[in-house]
Computed example of a mutant assay.
Amino acid sequence: MLPSLRLSLNHHLQTALRCSVCHQPMDEASAQLLAGICYSCLKLLEPEIQARCECCAIPMGTAGICGECQRHPRHFDKVRVLGDYQWPLDTLIKRFKYSGQQHLARPLAHLLWQHCAQYLSSEHVEFTFVPQHWWKQWRRGFNQSELLARELSRYHKRPLRSLFRRHRLGKAQVKLSARARRRALGSSFRLLKGDLPEFVILIDDVVTTCSTADVLAQQLKQAGLQRVEVWAIARTPK
């Protein structure tokens, strides 16, 4: 029993002191300072400087508002992302989301906070997250957006609010067009009762068509919120 326990403990310590991305060894001080990401991977994961839509964050040739957001004005005010859903972010997200590697929530949230916190203009802001249907969350074992939001709320030193409930499972949204998504999502979410702040940041892992974020932002704006931002790890380019 004791040798087995010692082996398990050593394995845990070794894993805890390895980079969450490349698995190379890290010293304890660096692991704590960089949220488990080595300097090389941190540099690789830094957001690229490129023009994005000032509303939905889709990549563009020049800064401005994309045609989709001009034709169909959004209910949210801004989407902020680390980068596009491509290597290496897509690899990390898949490991986090589909392989049960929940420890990746911390370094991913750390990177997102470093990139987005500079734009916070008010302390009166609260984090919430895109909810999952209970059946889907039970099968996966966790809600990846909630884990990210929980880490971000610790950075901001404010409590995490669960503001929505998803009461309809629906179809896999990734297979639907933007118009079909909005129609399917219209009655899938319910805003929970309670006092609301003036500014909410909605956390998700990946933004694809922004349909889910737009539906949730619409409910928040109708409830009287002044500003809704969406923070996500990655944006799926069209």
Rank of each mutant, 00 (worst) to 15 (best):
I93K: 07
R80F: 04
K157Y: 13
V81N: 05
H11W: 12
D204I: 05
R179W: 13
R6T: 11
L45I: 01
Q102R: 15
T209R: 00
L44E: 08
D195H: 13
E198M: 07
Q222A: 05
L92Q: 04
E151I: 04
L202K: 08
A35C: 07
F164Q: 02
V130N: 04
L82V: 08
Y39P: 02
G36H: 11
F189N: 02
S4C: 09
L104A: 06
L108P: 05
Q226I: 04
F164S: 02
E126R: 15
W231C: 03
A63D: 02
M60E: 03
Q118K: 08
G170P: 00
L33C: 11
I37C: 01
T236S: 07
R179H: 12
V230H: 04
C55R: 14
R139D: 10
H110C: 09
H115W: 10
R235T: 07
W135Y: 12
R150C: 06
G186P: 02
F199H: 15
M1Y: 13
F129N: 06
P47D: 00
K97P: 14
C55L: 11
W134P: 01
K136Q: 14
D90I: 06
E229R: 03
P197H: 04
L185K: 09
R183N: 13
L160W: 00
T208W: 11
S40F: 06
Q86D: 15
C22Q: 03
Q86Y: 01
I201A: 08
I58A: 03
T236R: 01
V81Y: 06
P131N: 03
Q132I: 07
A184H: 14
D214S: 08
R168H: 04
R158I: 13
L191Y: 03
Q114G: 10
I58L: 14
W138I: 09
E28Y: 14
H115S: 13
L112G: 10
A16Y: 09
H167V: 00
P47I: 02
H167R: 04
F189R: 00
E123L: 13
T236E: 05
A180V: 10
H115A: 12
N10D: 12
E146Q: 14
R183S: 09
Q114F: 08
L92D: 01
H167F: 02
P131E: 04
L176K: 11
T62F: 11
R71Y: 03
Q219M: 06
V200I: 15
L5G: 01
Q218C: 11
C210G: 13
P59C: 06
Q32I: 12
V206G: 09
Q218N: 08
L120V: 12
S99Q: 12
L5T: 06
C55V: 15
Q132R: 11
A178R: 15
F199M: 07
L148V: 06
E46N: 04
F96C: 00
I58T: 14
L112Q: 02
G186R: 14
R154L: 06
L152S: 07
K193Y: 06
T128Y: 00
H23M: 05
E151M: 05
Y85T: 11
T62A: 11
L163G: 00
A223P: 00
L104P: 07
T128S: 15
S162K: 15
A31L: 05
S30W: 11
R165C: 03
I37S: 01
L152P: 07
P107G: 07
D84P: 05
L192M: 09
Q50R: 14
Q173N: 06
Q114P: 04
F164V: 00
L225R: 00
L169A: 12
